[in-house]
Design a protein around this nucleic acid. Sequence first.
DNA 1: AATGAATGAGTCTTCATTCAT
DNA 2: GATGAATGAAGACTCATTCAT
Lengths: 204, 204, 204, 204
Amino acid sequence: MRRKKKTKSEDLIDRRKSQILEAAIKVFSEKGFEGSTTKEIAKKARVSEGTIFRYFKTKKEILIGLVNMLTEKSMFKFIQEVEDGLDPSQALKNILKLHYNMITQNYQLLKTIFYEMQFHKELREAFYKEVVSNVLEVIKKRIQESGSTRDDVPPELAAQTLLGIFLGITMVQTMVEENENPLDPDKKISLMLDIIFNGIKKHD
Amino acid sequence: MRRKKKTKSEDLIDRRKSQILEAAIKVFSEKGFEGSTTKEIAKKARVSEGTIFRYFKTKKEILIGLVNMLTEKSMFKFIQEVEDGLDPSQALKNILKLHYNMITQNYQLLKTIFYEMQFHKELREAFYKEVVSNVLEVIKKRIQESGSTRDDVPPELAAQTLLGIFLGITMVQTMVEENENPLDPDKKISLMLDIIFNGIKKHD
Amino acid sequence: MRRKKKTKSEDLIDRRKSQILEAAIKVFSEKGFEGSTTKEIAKKARVSEGTIFRYFKTKKEILIGLVNMLTEKSMFKFIQEVEDGLDPSQALKNILKLHYNMITQNYQLLKTIFYEMQFHKELREAFYKEVVSNVLEVIKKRIQESGSTRDDVPPELAAQTLLGIFLGITMVQTMVEENENPLDPDKKISLMLDIIFNGIKKHD
Amino acid sequence: MRRKKKTKSEDLIDRRKSQILEAAIKVFSEKGFEGSTTKEIAKKARVSEGTIFRYFKTKKEILIGLVNMLTEKSMFKFIQEVEDGLDPSQALKNILKLHYNMITQNYQLLKTIFYEMQFHKELREAFYKEVVSNVLEVIKKRIQESGSTRDDVPPELAAQTLLGIFLGITMVQTMVEENENPLDPDKKISLMLDIIFNGIKKHD
DNA sequence: AATGAATGAGTCTTCATTCAT
DNA sequence: GATGAATGAAGACTCATTCAT
């Protein structure tokens, strides 16, 4: 109960925090963590610099707040909401498709978070606890229950591989596309999924 | 001949540059680009701060110098030196194994380079020209000449996928391993390769 | 009305700016532009170094701000306020006397501005637009309307000559006086004016 | 004797010094004292930076060396060499014409010297002793012996005025010409001289 | 609670000067 | 004597954080 009931002032606090975090997403996405200034975040959030420090003790805390927001705003949660009844490989495809979009859409921010994780233990822990472990768990479950994966692949590794594949591919593609001509996103994702499921080897 | 013969002073310059770059690798790897100071690099390189700027006009140039070093020191070149006669999938495995080690060993630095690429065009271009395009080319060639890949997978995509898979997996594993127990690297890579070739789907 | 009414914060800004500019006058006058440090200006203005850069984006802007201050504080404007009814040569004398004092009082600063103008286009333009052109215009007008100058002297040249004479004489006198004994300023200016009007040639 | 006889090595020293000073003239003229680097002077003089400091203890000494060179190279001496028999006012005109050219030609350098004099006593003294006092003396003498100047003008002041007039006019003209169209130099100097001799007042 | 002016530690970078070769 | 690599002090400028209003 308590969880859901909030006093007015708590509400206000949350609103202010969100306001700041929304602004931070944009600024961090565009300029990275170090490249962003609290001044700019304040401006974009239409509050004063002082206010920011009322709600977040330090600049770093804003970034951590962002990670928490990611899950609260269920950017990742939806992964668990894919319907259950589906053909497993199709379900996985759906998951991955959504996942792909999410990563694509929040690519800049995620990159910043991923990067800064190296330097800030709190951030690393928050991100792992809030995001990674969930994602891995879901994927793992899906793979297992689909029953269609090879027996010699431990589900953990499969899940990690899957997540890594998506992250990495997205990164590389972003890089490549700036220099070469981009492929049709839909075709691209289909092919990637096909590769993941069937491998690149020719089967006769 | 002339190419290889260097004057004493050229040698010295190179040595100093290396000295600074080696230090920069450590510092950048540990603290990232923005988090590093030229002062600390100087200290670790056991030269004065002024000396750094004799050899690199700006801090950013150090990072670019690092990218060039990566190729010059043939961290990536070896890819082309894998013997030709091998069974193609085995050759690819060898390549990837080496590649994997390289990425693992320089993971922190690569992450920094990848990340900063967003903000520095020169770096982006240098890295793409020196590293990415080469890697992609080699992988593509290998995949093609192996003749064993599916016809419906464009080699470019396959190559990109491969590169991305390795980068992404490495990232995820680094994250995961900090929180869980690491797997045996050899087994891990074998499995990953297997996945890449054969996919995760069960074949009967 | 509105023009003159300033909000409190505008007032404060102006006060801070003035505070810094006053300090800058002293420091620049004493040590020149390059010889001055923002640190010293800050100290003399009793603000932190950071504050300086709140009000002036760069050190150079302080110098430009000084030029604007010169006119805003009507150090030069008064030239136009000399009464009109006077005997023209007397009016000019008054003008020049005031001018002389102003130049003398701000000699060091003016020298710095003059000098740095070589290297900073913005400064050159600001100074020319704000000061020189005005001065020249006024002097020219006065000379013309006095009707008492020779017809073969183009007013522009006469005006330039006048301005130059004062600047140059002030410079030389400053130099000379350090080594020899100074003359009575009033006598000096009278004589100079006389020379300018009547020339150095003996007329019988 | 000793004065004129120089050992070989003294000769060499002088040559090196000249070499450096010639370079310094160019660099200082273009970039001012603070804006110039010993590195650039060294480069232009085709010596190493270290060599510069063999011949001049400090950068400032180069500037002082330049002042001495000015007189030694008789940039100002010629003033005394104007023929004696001439009509006095014509002689003065010649002097001033030469003077004018000299100032014009070395304007940039002189400006730098003038400016830096404020901050360096040694320089100020050197310049006054070597240059100013000479010039003043000559002009004064000329004015006096011409017998054609007004009795109420003390020769010192007349001389100072003259020198100041030329310096100042040159400065102003340089400034003005950048913004407006330049006058024909010959006409300009004639007019200026005329003004100096006859004043700007109309004589009937 | 909110503001935004003020702070000052910390950054990259420059350059006169020194010194080993 | 000459070199030019190395030094390190010093400078302009930035920005997270604080605090008086």
